[in-house]
Amino acid sequence: MNIFRFLGDMSHILSFVILLLKITQGKSAAGISLRTQELYMIVFCSRYLDLFWNFSSLYNSFLKVVFIACSSAIVYIIRFKSPQKDTWNPELDNFPIQYLIGPCAVAGLLINQDWTPFEMIWAFSIYLEAVAILPQLFLLQKQGEVENLTSHYVAALGAYRGLYLMNWVYRYFTEDDYLQRIVWFAGTVQTGLYIDFFYHYYQSKRGGLSRPVKLP
């Protein structure tokens, strides 16, 4: 465990807290992509199958359960709970996620670490997480403006991935047998997707005013 990874996990938890607060207190899922939340639920449910046989630490296992529970709760609330479910706009949030799931599944089958079923599913979840934010970014693009809390949510997610990149660099230089090409590649792609958002997020927050984040 190193500080980058710890802060990365805390930032990931923060993103869940922000989103859960927004949809439960704000009673609205406007501006939140249910598609992205569904992809995250698939990512965590598939990646953490090893909960039952891989025990690395209590911290690890506890957060796996937390991430599965939170992502499932978010999907449930936006899909089924009133009044949030009425604030979700299927016309706007209509990114064809099958075009993300399909290629990731093929990639998981072809490029993985060990050719066992779990390794294929695990690799699938790594690739899927890299692109899971796309429906959300498309939704924000369509809306042009980003609601304040939503912008903090996406920023927290971006920070989590950026900190994980630093964690991999740190581990690469401090551990001798640390090699995770799949994770490094997918994580770099994923962090790249946030760069554009961060630029607009920074522009809008720079003035210190809470001007809404404007995407072109």
């Binding site: 990874r5 996990d9 990931h12 090893d50 046989w53 891989n54 690395s56 630490s57 690890n60 957060l63 796996k64 991430f67 670490q113 060990d114 390794e119 695990w122 994980y164 964690n167 640390y178 090699l179 995770q180 994770v183």
Partner: peptide, 10 residues
């Protein structure tokens, strides 16, 4: 390391 195969990250 063994079964974990480096999957000690979330």
């Amino acid at each position: 390391a063994g079964r974990l195969r480096g999957k000690d990250e979330l």
